[in-house]
Computed example of a mutant assay.
Amino acid sequence: MHSTDRPRRLRRDGVRSMVSETDLQPTDLVAPVFVDATTDERVPIESMPGHERVPVDEAVARVEEVLATGVEAVMLFGIPESKDEEGSRAWAEDGVVQRATRAITAETDATVITDVCLCEYTEHGHCGVLEADARDDPTLTVDNDATLDLLARTAVSQAEAGADMVAPSSMTDGMVGAIRTALDDAGFDDVAIMSYAAKYESAFYGPFRDAADGAPAFGDRRHYQMDPANGREALREVRLDVEQGADVLMVKPGLPYLDVVSDIRREFDHPVAAYNVSGEYAMLHAAAEKGWLDLDAVARESLLSLKRAGADIIVTYFAESVAAEC
């Protein structure tokens, strides 16, 4: 029997764009910005070509560069001037992220999302208060419940500085509930929470830890970040965050976890975000520098795959370059 079904008819120029199923726009993207309180000039991030740590005084200028490409949202990460055991600069009124947020919200129309975690601020580089003897016993790491109050204090301080959305990234059990309660009690019930609801203990984070100076001084994060082998567990983690009041559900990393993005999209009616992380960015740059890949093409294809899988929002270091091509 002769078949009349020929999908190639819809791949002709002029028709192809009309039937394209997935559309990528600059407003889908969030650009990470690293603000460094220890420097008075921009410092290139060697493992992330094209990105820099910027001093607080240049945070506005950096965000204006992002806005010029059509991207409307930034996520701020801070490198503090000092660190201590608890990470107290994370919630300081004059902390690096708080100062940058005030300046950016006063002088631009950017949507400001702030990272809520302690790893950049603690001497030990872990995402919270250490359990007793954690430095000597690899089975011990972060005291979950003792960390909640510090994360809540950090989120409130960022909201006071003008953050539109806070993004807790520590995978601390109960973090969304603690932060939601603290924000509401402080009068910031309109500040949204983008929870890193399914964050894996991934090998793709290396360049970021270099950029944010947040690598653990000992041990690793396998006791509080998710096992890369687990997919079903992600739905349990996400459901808990939804019940506690998360507004946006983040999966991190993005590309190795497209199945998780897709599962969450089908299971929940909340906006879904995916973090196209530093290792994903760096490996494409490295291959392009070898002449093995077309950087612009693979960057766009990578982000399209995240959008196709179900991500409404994509946090990516490719935000500016891809937005310029949209």
Rank of each mutant, 00 (worst) to 15 (best):
D13E: 06
K307F: 08
A31I: 07
L10T: 08
A297I: 06
S82L: 01
S82C: 01
D23M: 10
M171K: 02
D149K: 03
S82R: 13
E267Y: 07
G214Y: 12
G219T: 03
D269M: 09
D189Q: 13
H285G: 04
A229Y: 10
R153Q: 13
E93R: 14
W91A: 11
R153N: 08
V63R: 01
E81Q: 08
E289N: 14
L140S: 08
T316G: 04
A299N: 07
V191L: 00
P228R: 10
G214R: 10
G310V: 07
T39M: 13
L295Y: 12
V30K: 04
D57Q: 11
C119D: 10
M48E: 13
G214M: 13
G310L: 05
V97P: 00
M283S: 11
V142S: 01
D185E: 15
D84C: 01
H124M: 11
V251Y: 01
V315N: 00
E301L: 00
Y281H: 13
D109M: 03
V60H: 05
D149S: 09
S321R: 15
T4Q: 05
L29Y: 14
E131L: 05
E21F: 14
A287E: 15
V261D: 03
D269K: 06
L24N: 07
K199P: 03
P55C: 12
G78Q: 04
E81C: 06
D36L: 02
D189P: 07
T27G: 11
P253N: 09
R239I: 09
L67I: 12
D294I: 05
A215S: 14
A286N: 03
D136E: 15
M75F: 06
V60C: 12
L293M: 15
V166A: 03
R99E: 15
V322W: 14
V97Q: 02
F34E: 04
G128E: 00
Y317F: 11
D149Q: 03
A37T: 10
S47M: 12
E107N: 08
S202Y: 08
R9C: 06
T114F: 05
G206C: 09
D189L: 12
E237H: 11
M1S: 11
V30C: 03
E233D: 13
V129G: 00
A59T: 08
A100T: 00
G70V: 11
E21D: 14
M283D: 11
H124N: 06
R89W: 04
S302C: 05
S169R: 01
D57R: 11
S47C: 07
G125C: 09
D296M: 00
T141V: 13
A90P: 04
E65N: 07
R239E: 09
F204K: 08
A324F: 12
N144W: 02
V248W: 01
N230M: 10
L67K: 04
L258V: 12
D210L: 09
G206R: 02
L235F: 10
G187E: 13
A297H: 10
D145I: 00
